[in-house]
């Protein structure tokens, strides 16, 4: 999966055992297909729809799905739900993706340093991890959302701040087990710098667990965005996100159930797909089952 992997193996990467195993994981494959389809739909779909996601038409409010060209109906302001859903997908998927990148970076950095250095550095860093874990994440998220202006970028940052700890723990544990291995000792004897050993020698060997954790983090981040936005602390209208499309849907549950059903179903499909992929990667990369 990386440069090092490639140089190690004469075969093409798609013939590698990991890829073979992943391809055999039918659910993971299904997840992969779904995510590609969803991403394409979200980023290309809006160009194919007749309505703009922000266009308000009060005469057309609460149109049920399949009325005219409103394939998925309209919302309380008469905006086209299909257009909003796809546009919301761009935002939600990006929030999920960038939150994953950010939290994985933070988590990996702290995990590698704590695991490699050990001793006091590790103790301090891991206590920080504990402190973050001792906060109910919902508290941190809601308080931060009230503190910072809830733009998509801020929501991404907030989600990342509350979800890097697991990666840090996993990486810490992995690195610690590698610390006394021959190649690390050899590196030290060759006089390589700690930074070099940590990030060039040790890190590539923990990529498997990191990739698995990262995939699951995307799923988690999409869910978290939905939770915060549903509670009204997240991405603010008129910008659509999957979560804020659901905010307020409860009020119209009787009159316009599609307002709740459509975005919720989409979230479930997206999150399930990422979880399937994560599961497939876990099997493929032969990572220990580290659920929770």
């Amino acid at each position: 999966m990386t440069a090092i992997d490639l140089s190690d193996r004469p075969n093409r990467w798609w013939r590698s055992r990991a890829v073979q195993r992943f391809m055999r994981h039918r659910l993971a494959l299904l997840g992969m297909v779904m995510i590609v389809a969803l991403t394409l739909a979200c980023f290309l779909g809006p160009y194919l729809l007749p309505y703009d996601s922000l266009y308000i038409d009060l005469r057309a409010r609460f149109a049920p799905p399949l009325t005219g060209q409103h394939y998925l109906g309209t919302d309380p302001l008469g905006r086209d739900i299909a257009a909003r859903l796809l546009e919301a997908g761009q935002i939600s998927l990006q929030v999920g993706f960038y939150a994953m990148i950010l939290s994985t970076l933070i988590g990996t950095l702290i995990g590698v340093i704590a695991g490699y250095r050990g001793g006091l550095v590790s103790a301090v860093l891991m206590r920080i991890v504990d402190a973050f874990l001792a906060f109910p994440s919902i508290f941190l998220m809601l308080a931060l959302a009230a503190l910072l202006k809830p733009s998509p970028v801020m929501i991404t940052v907030i989600i990342a701040i509350t979800s890097w700890m697991e990666v840090a723990r996993i990486v810490d544990a992995e690195v610690r087990s590698l610390r006394e291995r021959e190649f690390v000792l050899a590196g030290r004897m060759l006089g390589l710098s700690s930074t070099h050993i940590m990030f060039r020698e040790v890190l590539p060997n923990v990529l498997g667990p990191i990739i698995v954790a990262a995939t699951l983090t995307v799923a988690r981040a999409i869910l978290l965005e939905a939770y915060i936005s549903f509670l009204g602390y997240g991405i603010q209208p008129p910008l659509p996100s999957w979560g804020n499309m659901l905010n307020g849907a409860q009020q119209y549950l009787d009159k316009a159930p599609w307002l709740a059903i459509i975005p919720g179903l989409t979230i479930t499909i997206a999150v399930t797909s990422f979880n399937f992929i994560g599961d497939g990667l876990r099997d493929a990369l032969d990572v220990r089952n580290d659920q929770n």
Binding site: I56, L77, Y233, Q236, P237, P238, N247, G248
Partner: peptide
């Protein structure tokens, strides 16, 4: 005030 749905709708309508 966030969470006041009718006001939020009014805002978006005026915005347009």
């Amino acid at each position: 005030t966030s969470g006041n749905h009718l006001r939020e709708q009014t805002q978006q309508f005026i915005q347009q």
